[in-house]
Amino acid sequence: MAKEQSRQIDKRQVALIAYLALGVAMILMTLVLAFTPETPATTQVTVVATRTLSPLVLTQQADYVTIGPAAHQGSGTGGGRGQHAEATPASTIESGTATPSGENHDTSH
């Protein structure tokens, strides 16, 4: 009788240990997934900034009859530091100076 009772207790304990072992495995897996470098903490999640075609290509494709001065250049409130006061027509961009974005950038931090 006593042996049967102790066996039952053992079974319950084994079941509890197995249940908790699975729980611990899931917790460790959760931590591994959360701390892996693939998480958005280290990857860019920009949703607005998109690279367009290079200015060179855009200039070549442009319909010169309908294009007017670029609205944002020089039309801001007060004008920025080192900014030209007059609007620069998009159609007059020199092809030699326009480089695809992401190239020839001098980014000093």
Partner: peptide
């Protein structure tokens, strides 16, 4: 870490051919 900004500035200023800080 300041290097964290590398690559991001170009993304938010896609038209710029030169970026200065």
């Amino acid at each position: 870490n300041q290097d964290a900004l590398n690559g991001y500035v170009e993304e938010v200023l896609p038209q710029a051919t030169r970026i200065e800080s």
